[in-house]
Amino acid sequence: MSDSPERISLAGRLRNNFLTGLIICAPLAITVWLTFTFIDWADSWVTPYIPQRYDPQYYFNITIPGTGLVVAVLFITIIGFLGKNLIGRSIVNFGESILHRMPLIRTIYRSVKQILETVLKEQSTSFKKCGLIEFPSPGMWALVFISGDASGEIAVKLNQDGEEMVGVFMPPTPVPTAGFLMFVPKSKIVMLDMTPEEGAKLLISGGLIAPEYAPKPAPVPVLPAPDNLSASK
């Protein structure tokens, strides 16, 4: 009976060591796996289109991971460089004019282009802030990502009372691959200082990984000068 506490203590230590090792190894293993999976996916798409004389695998007779990804990045960069000058812009406009004449293709192309332009635009404020809204009922708060002010028809229809509406995206926990797009009055949103990356960690972990927060010190009030000093001057 006296050995029972020692055995329980040893089992507890082994369990804690295993969990600590899992926390250290699992993120690293998943990151490496995702990285190589993405590289293999890019290679499988691009490598077959590389001419044989430009393919380093032809000369070394070995598979070089990342060749297709590097070629894709260089190709996209060159296309972007050429698309900025007059000749390249004319070619792009001519290609887009052909796509816009195709009934189904033009809808897909315009939608994808608009999404990419919104996400990649340097001046865009999409998902640069986090906030809290009362959901699903008063007194219960949900984490949301601010997508920007309402615009277009939505702004005209919803801003009739003079209160500015803001678009927010509320993803589920723990896999934020889907969610709800809602338009909420700006006064109903509690803005947070945490970054979207910190908000994503909080969301994915189910609230276990909360970012550190140091409240900002209150501003020191500036007292007016005494009347006797101002009178003497």
Score class of each variant (00 low, 15 high):
residue 1 M to D: 08
residue 6 E to F: 06
residue 10 L to E: 12
residue 14 L to Y: 07
residue 15 R to A: 10
residue 20 T to W: 08
residue 20 T to N: 11
residue 23 I to R: 09
residue 26 A to G: 04
residue 26 A to P: 04
residue 32 V to N: 06
residue 32 V to G: 08
residue 33 W to T: 14
residue 33 W to K: 11
residue 36 F to Y: 05
residue 36 F to Q: 06
residue 38 F to C: 14
residue 39 I to N: 02
residue 43 D to T: 03
residue 44 S to D: 15
residue 44 S to A: 14
residue 45 W to C: 09
residue 48 P to S: 09
residue 50 I to Q: 14
residue 51 P to F: 05
residue 52 Q to V: 05
residue 54 Y to I: 04
residue 56 P to Y: 09
residue 57 Q to D: 09
residue 60 F to L: 07
residue 62 I to D: 05
residue 67 T to D: 04
residue 68 G to M: 03
residue 71 V to H: 03
residue 71 V to E: 12
residue 72 A to T: 00
residue 73 V to K: 01
residue 74 L to G: 12
residue 75 F to C: 09
residue 80 G to M: 07
residue 81 F to H: 09
residue 81 F to C: 04
residue 81 F to N: 08
residue 81 F to E: 12
residue 82 L to T: 01
residue 90 S to G: 10
residue 91 I to D: 10
residue 92 V to W: 01
residue 96 E to L: 13
residue 99 L to V: 15
residue 99 L to Q: 12
residue 102 M to D: 13
residue 105 I to V: 12
residue 106 R to W: 01
residue 110 R to F: 10
residue 110 R to T: 11
residue 111 S to M: 00
residue 112 V to H: 04
residue 113 K to S: 12
residue 113 K to F: 13
residue 115 I to G: 08
residue 115 I to D: 14
residue 116 L to W: 00
residue 119 V to G: 07
residue 122 E to G: 04
residue 124 S to T: 06
residue 126 S to A: 02
residue 127 F to K: 02
residue 129 K to E: 15
residue 132 L to D: 13
residue 132 L to T: 03
residue 133 I to R: 13
residue 138 P to H: 14
residue 143 L to G: 03
residue 144 V to C: 09
residue 148 G to F: 06
residue 148 G to A: 13
residue 148 G to D: 11
residue 149 D to C: 00
residue 150 A to G: 03
residue 151 S to M: 11
residue 152 G to P: 15
residue 153 E to S: 11
residue 153 E to C: 02
residue 154 I to W: 03
residue 154 I to P: 03
residue 155 A to C: 09
residue 155 A to S: 02
residue 157 K to H: 07
residue 157 K to I: 11
residue 158 L to H: 06
residue 158 L to E: 02
residue 162 G to E: 03
residue 163 E to Y: 06
residue 165 M to S: 08
residue 167 G to M: 12
residue 169 F to P: 11
residue 170 M to D: 09
residue 171 P to I: 03
residue 172 P to N: 15
residue 172 P to H: 04
residue 173 T to K: 02
residue 174 P to V: 04
residue 174 P to M: 00
residue 174 P to L: 08
residue 177 T to Y: 01
residue 178 A to Y: 03
residue 180 F to N: 00
residue 180 F to H: 07
residue 185 P to Q: 00
residue 186 K to V: 02
residue 186 K to P: 01
residue 186 K to G: 07
residue 188 K to T: 15
residue 188 K to I: 05
residue 191 M to I: 04
residue 195 T to D: 10
residue 201 K to C: 12
residue 201 K to D: 11
residue 201 K to T: 13
residue 201 K to P: 06
residue 206 G to P: 09
residue 207 G to R: 05
residue 210 A to W: 08
residue 211 P to W: 05
residue 212 E to S: 14
residue 213 Y to I: 02
residue 213 Y to V: 08
residue 218 A to Q: 10
residue 220 V to M: 13
residue 220 V to D: 14
residue 223 L to P: 00
residue 223 L to A: 09
residue 225 A to I: 00
residue 229 L to D: 01
residue 232 S to E: 11
residue 233 K to R: 02
residue 233 K to G: 08
